[in-house]
Amino acid sequence: MMKHTLSVLVMNQPGVLARVAGLFSRRGFNIESLAVGVTDEPNISRMTIQVEADDATLEQITKQLHKLIDVIKISDITTDERVDRELALIKISGDAANRSEILQVADIFRAKIVDVAEKSIVIEVTGDEAKIDALVQLTRPYGIIELVRTGKISMVRGSK
């Protein structure tokens, strides 16, 4: 089993996300993360889907996805040179006593403080999965109140 990153161009139609998600669930494929947004062409969206699958399953996933009328193109960019990014918002319990400690941790990760309240701090961080995992790990001891991650988006490097 290996983690694969699929970059999928789809028609920007109502229901397209349900079609893709439904296909994965009814054929027993597991989505690790899925991010979707419109491309430079307003009628086309890009989905970045991360799946864990062996080769045969991945081939079935790809072929079944291709059968969806709204799916235009699927690229497996797992082995391509690429930039992976994810954004996370982490709400941590923090007050005057440990605030500066938390700020230091955030600083090391080049994360931004986007909200400070009496008893909580919200950190915004972007990076690859490992970086966000590491920051989550380090902030856990302070008490994570809420964690929101966008799911990974990816882009192949160079002019390809």
Binding site: P14, G15, A18, R19, G22, L23, R26, I69
Partner: peptide
């Protein structure tokens, strides 16, 4: 019905 028939049609439209 488009939600219901999504897995049992080749395609559907609302």
């Amino acid at each position: 019905i488009t939600g219901i028939t999504m897995p049992i049609t080749k395609h559907n439209y609302l």
